[in-house]
């Protein structure tokens, strides 16, 4: 029991250390640059305690739950040898985790008002809603395809460089032709799709797959799924902007 408490204390200290840079930056700018006191000090400290607690629990849960299940499922699929099911699983994981992502919903709504102001769509609530929904499905589909593509790459052992560089070339090419309003949103949508729960799961899936297939190196073949998940949305969103 005493050991468990000690371990908890130690990981809380580690979380506090992770947050220290933010605290230093905020305090320095508020006091030294603006020369103003910190507002609501009590609430601030309370919030900080919550952040430390939350981070500690999250890291614990990561190593107990998310990593093991991601890897054990990857091993099970590899043993089962059914590529079709693995691909269906990869697609649902990508699509399912993205469609409900709050950051994506916010960005899609923002994008709809940009498009309405730019005269791309009508400025009615209905038109905006359907545009935003279309965008959300586009991004979710693209993440689904991205995870599938990444999984196929691991199975085949293709090298990632040429695929990513090819993707970059496509992004650059499409930037030239896509409507100006959509470009910024498209570039940003690559970043917002990968949430705090998806990243550990997808990483564990990739590493698990690469380590259970003979001839694959988990370091070279296991990583890279997230790279696809942030590249493909850019391409899909620009395509969406060009079609609408």
């Amino acid at each position: 029991m005493k050991n468990a408490f000690w371990a908890l204390f130690k990981s809380m200290a580690a979380s506090l250390r992770d947050l220290a840079p933010i605290i230093i930056v905020v305090v320095f700018f508020q006091l030294a640059v603006f020369g103003q006191p910190l507002p609501n000090l009590a609430e601030l400290l309370m919030g900080l305690l919550f952040v430390v607690l939350g981070l500690t629990f999250f890291i614990y849960g990561l190593e107990m739950g998310l990593f093991p299940i991601g890897e054990s499922m990857a091993h099970a699929f590899a043993r089962k040898g059914s590529v079709l099911w693995l691909i269906i699983f990869a697609f649902s994981l990508g699509f399912g985790t993205t469609i409900a992502e709050p950051a994506l919903i916010a960005v899609a709504a923002e994008a709809a008002s940009v498009a309405a102001n730019g005269g791309v769509i009508e400025a009615t609530l209905n038109a905006k809603q359907s545009y935003a929904n279309g965008l959300r499905y586009t991004v979710a589909l693209s993440v689904g395809f991205a995870i599938v593509l990444g999984v196929i790459r691991i199975l085949k052992g293709w090298s990632i460089q040429y695929m990513i560089i090819g993707g970059y070339c496509l992004v650059v090419l499409m930037t030239v032709f896509a409507p100006k309003e959509i470009v910024g949103i498209a570039y940003d949508s690559g970043g917002v799709t990968t949430s705090t729960i998806t990243v550990p799961l997808v990483t564990a899936l990739g590493v698990g797959l690469a380590s259970s297939i003979r001839g694959r190196n988990p370091m070279i073949d296991g990583f890279g799924l997230i790279a696809f998940a942030s590249l493909l949305p850019m391409i899909f969103v620009m395509a969406y902007g060009m079609v609408i």
Binding site: G54, M64, G65, L66
Partner: peptide, 14 residues
């Protein structure tokens, strides 16, 4: 399951 519960609690507090 405990790990998942921890992740949810952790994210909430965070």
């Amino acid at each position: 399951v405990i790990g998942f519960v921890y992740v949810i609690i952790g994210l909430t507090f965070f």
